[in-house]
């Protein structure tokens, strides 16, 4: 197994404040890595730094063997698809046109797709259950549908690494599970890095979790080993534990 993404002691500071301190992990093809931690823990910055979108102070990131900050935007986009925390549709284009922007790095214009681009767009739209909404304008659909459209845009990119910043924020439980299924499906051929506040979801779908607080990784590894009560208390400041209920893991927090 070759590493899609490899971080060695990555530190980032923004405006003189340390935001990520010495984060290391390796994400191989076929793996899902989840970033957990309270608001302001540095999850977003860690994702951006890993992809070369935010400059690194010390340490190194390797995206399929290369320093991502030295790749051209196009080359980087062919290796990693990134979904920001609050994805935007500035202009009310159709769902299909928005998804087709994922083919940008492949040279496609959203309204003039080659058969290959069209196929990628169709697969992504289908995977995100948007088929009946594809002609609708982005300002005529619900928040959950918008989130799915942006996820479909990232999938249409067909990059080996999928990096998603809180892809389930604001989604109902069924939609969040649907997103988890999409991540698992992508991990069959590629890798997934995502951040979330949904500890239960991360415990069930990630191969590896990084629990962060104030820029530091305080626990790391397989969910059952890393997410101990001590680590959860240190990260979130409340008592928490991971319980096995039937076939699934459940995170339980108490004040």
């Amino acid at each position: 197994m070759s590493a899609l993404l490899e971080l060695g002691a990555v530190s980032v500071s923004l405006g003189g404040r340390s935001v990520v301190a010495g984060a290391s992990f390796s994400l191989a093809s076929g793996q899902i890595v989840a970033l957990l931690g309270p608001n302001g823990a540095g999850k977003t910055t860690l994702i951006r730094a890993a992809l070369g979108l935010t400059p690194i102070d010390s340490g190194a990131s390797r995206l399929i063997g290369d320093d991502p900050s030295r790749l051209s935007p196009r080359e980087r986009a062919l290796r990693a698809a990134y979904l920001p925390q609050r994805p935007q549709a500035i202009w009310p284009v159709s769902v299909e046109n928005l998804v087709a922007l994922g083919r940008f790095a492949h040279g496609a214009a959203p309204d003039r797709l080659s058969p290959r681009d069209q196929a990628a767009v169709d697969v992504a739209i289908d995977a995100c259950a948007l088929t009946s909404l594809r002609a609708r304008s982005m300002n005529e659909i619900s928040g959950g549908e918008k989130a799915r459209a942006h996820l479909a845009r990232a999938l249409a990119q067909q990059a080996p690494l999928l990096a998603l910043d809180e892809p389930t924020a604001g989604l109902d439980p069924a939609q969040a599970l649907a997103v988890a299924a999409i991540l698992r499906k992508h991990a069959e051929q590629g890798g997934v890095l995502f951040s979330t506040h949904d500890v239960t979801l991360a415990a069930n779908c990630a191969d590896q979790v990084l629990l962060m607080r104030e820029g530091k990784v305080i626990a790391q590894g397989a969910p059952r080993e890393a997410l101990t009560s001590v680590a959860l208390r240190e990260a979130y400041g409340v008592s928490g534990s991971i319980e096995q209920i039937g076939g699934t893991l459940t995170a339980i927090f108490r004040a």
């Binding site: 935007p73 990134y82 994805p87 935007q88 284009v93 922007l101 940008f104 214009a109 959203p110 845009r153």
Partner: peptide, 21 residues
């Protein structure tokens, strides 16, 4: 023109889909 199309997604995502802003 293509870069403007990419900016439909906002600055962050436009750079991430491969636009040279």
């Amino acid at each position: 023109a293509r870069g403007l199309q990419a900016l439909t997604l906002g600055e962050e995502a436009a750079a991430a889909i491969g636009a040279n802003l």
